[in-house]
């Protein structure tokens, strides 16, 4: 699979990274080089193999249903580029 400028721009848009045309163009050979290389994985017969789910055998622990956190609005908003009236503020969204 190889990518072209349009695909790179589409991916950049999905990833929310603004990219000029020249930047996208420059990225085409770079990505194709890397993608071409990772595609050798296709050679491996994995038909009878499960994808890895836990790196080290371990089970998912579950928490008790107790309120132990929250109530820390100052900490939550401390680093906000723009906070007003206890909210994060963003440019107006049209749904």
């Amino acid at each position: 699979m190889s990518v072209d400028t349009a695909t790179v721009k589409k991916i950049a848009s999905l990833a929310r990274i603004a990219m000029r045309d020249d930047e996208a163009e420059a990225m085409v050979p770079e990505l194709n080089n890397i993608l071409g290389w990772i595609e050798q994985l296709g050679e491996v017969d994995t038909s009878a193999v499960e994808p890895m789910t836990a790196v080290i055998p371990n089970h998912l622990r579950l928490r008790e249903d107790v309120v132990t956190d929250g109530n820390c609005r100052d900490k939550v908003l401390a680093n906000a580029p723009q906070a007003e009236h206890g909210f994060f503020a963003v440019p107006k969204v049209i749904e």
């Binding site: 699979m1 999905l14 990772i38 994985l41 890895m52 789910t53």
Partner: peptide, 18 residues
């Protein structure tokens, strides 16, 4: 992205098992 998950990510996680 759509349509590539099995060929790339899932295959890589299978190879990881190997």
């Amino acid at each position: 992205s759509a349509g590539f998950y099995d060929a790339y990510y899932n295959q890589a996680q299978k190879v990881r098992t190997l």
